[in-house]
Design a protein around this nucleic acid. Sequence first.
DNA 1: GTCTATATGTTGATAGAC
DNA 2: GTCTATCAACATATAGAC
Lengths: 224, 224
Amino acid sequence: MKQLKGRKAAKRPPPPEPDGDTQARILDAAHAVFIRRGTTGARMQEIAGEAGVNPALLHYYFRNKEQLSESVFRRAAAQLLPRVIEVMASDAALENKVARVVALELEHLSRAPYLPGYIISELHYHPDRVRQLLATVAGVTPEDVRPKVLPKLGRQLAAAARAGTLRRITADQFLVNLLSLCIFPFAARPMIMALVGLDQHGFERFIARRRDELADFFLRALRP
Amino acid sequence: MKQLKGRKAAKRPPPPEPDGDTQARILDAAHAVFIRRGTTGARMQEIAGEAGVNPALLHYYFRNKEQLSESVFRRAAAQLLPRVIEVMASDAALENKVARVVALELEHLSRAPYLPGYIISELHYHPDRVRQLLATVAGVTPEDVRPKVLPKLGRQLAAAARAGTLRRITADQFLVNLLSLCIFPFAARPMIMALVGLDQHGFERFIARRRDELADFFLRALRP
DNA sequence: GTCTATATGTTGATAGAC
DNA sequence: GTCTATCAACATATAGAC
């Protein structure tokens, strides 16, 4: 989009901030505002201001607020689960999977700590968004991995239980426990910071320690 | 409020639905609507309709939307943490505390599954609400228990570590792990239902199984 | 593609009768 | 305490000039 017209390119003054397409600037600004205010609390005008563009342009590129918010949610949701699902669907050993998921999620969420709160809020108030969340997971591999990852994980867990390597646990409890321990601290970040008495840096150190301990904690819970 | 006037009580026709004070009816309706739509998405008119009351009465009892939403949040927040803090601050043994918190939370949240999503959303979009959340915790005992519960728990954990009963873990990681495993499944309920492929009843069974396994899972992670 | 101006519809809130 | 009527303040969205 926004390719130059050629004959008039030298004459027309450049836009205020030429960094990136207008559309991309809008999407980035919308991302920030929707995460800060929520879908219903976000104001188109604030997004336009943050993007440094005229408010009418939001409707030019994205038809209305609904479609804009959907684009933002899609992009945000694509950051939360796909990589975890990918690891879970792989052929790696269970211990390896746990370690990789913990490292992956804690490192990524440290850079986007507001993501879980935003996504949980969206799914809570807009149940239809669930489909868009699943769509991001479906794209991880050529085929839809979702119906596969749980049965596969289940077989892996059952085999480990028979071999005496791990205690018996169902695949869904296994997955939810792991996701809980990784994601909840970020989703409930304000609550935890207040409860434990942490400031910004304290929380970061708290997460840093977690990176070292969490996989071990989790795997010990499954020792026979 | 709304005590009868005595001399005119027999003459005036009773209000449409005499069950409960008007103020309480409004608060209950507001509770439902705020949890369903979020603070910014909630409409005063919808609350009035759900309460079966004239919209103007919302402003008569609660001055404005802000104060009404604050009353609702206070009441909701009071259901999430106080009992957990109370157990944690008690003199019970660690194994006992874990078992009681798991039983307490899973049983209560099964009846109010939308509570965690609402509270996390509120804290995410209205950081000032954190103070109101802490206020609910402070009221658990005559004095403010918050500054006490973590150090006490820490000493308990350190003693257990010295005695060789439990592996060493800090009080904050202990508390956050426990809360994560209890609360996250409800906070991320729509996501989990979609990911695992559960309907309403499937989710309830999922939680029921969790009630039996979770305390054991948690304590095994801390075995030396 | 970008801007100005404006239409259109809500929403929270109040005044004042009953 | 409860109701009707109404206001002022946005917020989304579009029309049309440039």
